[in-house]
Design a protein around this nucleic acid. Structure first.
Length: 578
RNA sequence: GCCCCCGUAGCUCAUUUGGAUAGAGCAGCGGCCUUCUAAGCCGCUGGUAGCAGGUUCGAAUCCUGCCGGGGGUGCCA
């Protein structure tokens, strides 16, 4: 079922269709029809269409006949210029002037809040995303969670929700014991301060290599981690430094991406809560001990879901335990309306178990949890590897994109003001858009040629379109007219298409939230940018008589407003020149 | 073995939660800058939607089976 934007001209159309159907003896409500109308997918079929197939059975009449009858009985409201029955559909053409006179002033008035609402007022959404591991590189894999989470966060806020961005850092675990031991053995203070993550990661890689031939490293690692857990001041301090330095470096990436968190409570944060949690669950009978000494929460359907492992046979807890503790903590702290986990599909079963366990414990809020899963970021075998392990450092990727942008600017727009800032926004924007423009369930292949492509349906295309409108409006040089604009002058096909794209934006926002899918916004913005570029190419916006120029400039400026706000919602910059 | 996800043009992806003749971009070929930024616009070429059934007035979309790819399957997260 397809919905069309709920503008008032559309309400009129629904009412008229209800009346027309009534003359045939069909009783429906305008609300029913509102969800039945579709946007025709083909040129020449108008701007909206009502499928008449569902009425065929009741009327005992072939759908094309019904469409014909409805068209005859249809009293067209002012916004409709033409109605025609086509192969079982009732097709409707709008008067662009009337649509424009409703849509464009509402954009001009709302500015960047066009499409916003207060539907989320009073509702808090917790969002667990990004969650890199301390002392390890921030890779391209983490980028997907970060970028999707950031975009959803901004979109939810646009719709009135309060959001709590939580960076659930991987800052605990036995690997820190090894890392501490490795740092004591080979660590270099200067190196640590200069390139903390590269240094720590090389130690991490080295100690694992050493451990393969010399198992004593495993024991040393265990001992150091035990000391860390027991609060040994020296180990504690070292761990804290690793964490602080890593976070500081992540911060630089986050800054480039425009990402900010309300909380960076990671795994370590929940450690102190685990023993009481386990004790309570055992006492209440939710957790039971298995034959081999492990403590689990059994699942109702063992075939479907294996039990959730709370404590291993060796007494150590698991990430499931920490996630359970984190869920409890988040609910008591934030009383969330939704708690979103933006985590890869590989962990789908884990979250299914987690949510089931919460329900079994008796938390009615378990149903407010959602796993927002996404596919893998894969790499073509060449190119991808850096010397240490198979990881691309995100900062290097971003810098590569910025370098390319810088050289394009030098070539095409050498007089541009502040080229460095523009290169940063466009380069980073290209990467962000590349990630967010594919439906999140799908795997993506990291391919330099594709990621660094700036032509066609790409981030730079959107930004370039935005910059060009901005430049056009600057050339216009006057205030955007806000009253007594004659929208009747908007009559070309290009103008109509752009107008309908703009009118559809609020609906696309709703869908993006409904499906937790930023790609919907990316796709909508590309469509409207393309509609604008055709308009720009084929219609001289600033030439001609004053009333026509005014209407066109309001149309162009409205596109600029929506594009600007849409780029923000995707997590991209919108330079005014490029 | 069992469970989940994916399979659409040479490549990368859409297809608005079942609608009309499945659309874009890239790549290829051909056009458009003395006029608002050519990171743009226009045209051409390109399809048995993995395969086979089923449900429906109507299926890329829902169901079943098979093929192919990926992931998961109590002690890594």
């Amino acid at each position: 079922m397809t919905k069309i934007a709920s503008q008032s001209y559309f309400q009129d159309v629904c009412d008229a269709a209800v009346a027309a159907l009534e003359t045939l003896g069909v009783v429906v409500t305008a609300a029913d029809l509102a969800t039945s109308f579709e946007a025709p997918n083909k040129k020449g079929f108008g701007d909206a269409a009502l499928p008449c197939f569902p009425f065929a059975r009741q009327l005992k009449m072939p759908p094309p006949k019904i469409a014909e009858k409805v068209a005859e009985a249809f009293h067209a409201p002012p916004a409709v210029v033409k109605v025609a029955p086509i192969s079982g559909f009732l097709n409707i053409w709008y008067d662009p002037g009337i649509v424009a006179s409703e849509v464009l002033p509402s954009i001009q008035e709302a500015q960047h809040r066009y499409g916003a609402s207060d539907e989320g007022a009073g509702k808090t959404v917790c969002m667990d995303y990004s969650h890199p591991n301390i002392a390890k590189p921030f890779g391209v894999g983490h980028l997907r969670s970060t970028v999707i989470g950031n975009s959803l966060k901004r979109t939810l806020e646009h719709r009135g929700y309060s959001t709590v961005g939580i960076n659930h850092l991987g800052d605990w675990g036995t690997q820190f014991g090894k890392l501490i031991a490795a740092f004591r053995e080979w660590g270099d203070e200067d190196e640590l301060l200069r390139e903390p993550i590269k240094h720590l990661y090389s130690l991490y890689v080295r100690v694992h290599q050493e451990a393969e031939s010399d198992p004593s490293w495993d024991d040393r690692g265990r001992q150091e981690f035990k000391k860390l857990e027991d609060g040994d001041p020296a180990n504690r301090e070292l761990w804290q430094r690793f964490r602080d330095l890593s976070l500081r470096e992540f911060g630089r990436v986050y800054q480039r991406l425009g990402v900010a968190f309300e909380s960076d409570a990671g795994e370590a944060f929940y450690e102190s809560k685990l023993s009481s949690l386990i004790e309570r669950l055992t006492k209440e009978g939710h957790a039971i001990e298995g034959d081999d000494g492990a403590l689990v929460i059994p699942m109702p359907d063992t075939e479907e879901e294996p039990p959730l492992l709370l404590r291993k046979a060796d007494g150590a807890t698991t990430y499931a335990t920490r996630d359970l503790a984190a869920a409890e903590y988040r609910f008591t702290t934030y009383e969330f309306y939704r708690c979103l986990y933006i985590v890869g599909s590989a962990q789908a079963l884990h979250f299914k178990q987690l949510f089931t366990a919460l329900k079994q414990i008796g938390y009615e809020w378990a149903e407010r949890m959602r796993h927002i899963e996404f596919g893998w970021v894969k790499f073509a075998d060449s190119m991808m590897s850096t010397r240490q392990g198979n990881i691309i450092f995100l900062n290097d990727v971003l810098s590569e994109a910025v370098d390319k942008t810088r050289s394009i600017i030098a070539e095409r727009n050498p007089d541009l003001d502040d080229p460095e800032n523009v290169a940063e926004q466009v380069g980073v924007g290209a990467i962000v858009f590349w990630m967010v423009s594919v439906k999140r369930q799908k795997d993506v292949n990291f391919d330099w040629d594709e990621v660094l492509s700036f032509d066609g349906r790409t981030g730079p295309y959107l930004q370039y379109t935005h910059a060009r409108v901005g430049s056009l409006i600057a050339r216009y040089g006057k205030q955007i007219p806000t009253s007594s604009v004659d929208y009747k002058t908007l009559s070309t096909e290009e103008e109509r298409q752009l107008l309908l794209q703009l009118a559809d934006w609020p609906r696309r926002l709703s869908q993006a939230i409904q499906f937790y899918e930023p790609q919907i916004l990316a796709s909508a913005l590309l469509d409207m940018a393309q509609a604008y570029n055709r308009f720009y190419q084929n219609v001289r916006i600033l030439d001609g008589d004053q009333s026509a120029v005014e209407a066109r400039i309001v149309l162009a400026d409205s596109l600029r407003i929506v594009l600007n706000s849409g780029l923000y919602l995707l997590g991209m910059g919108a330079p005014s020149r490029m």
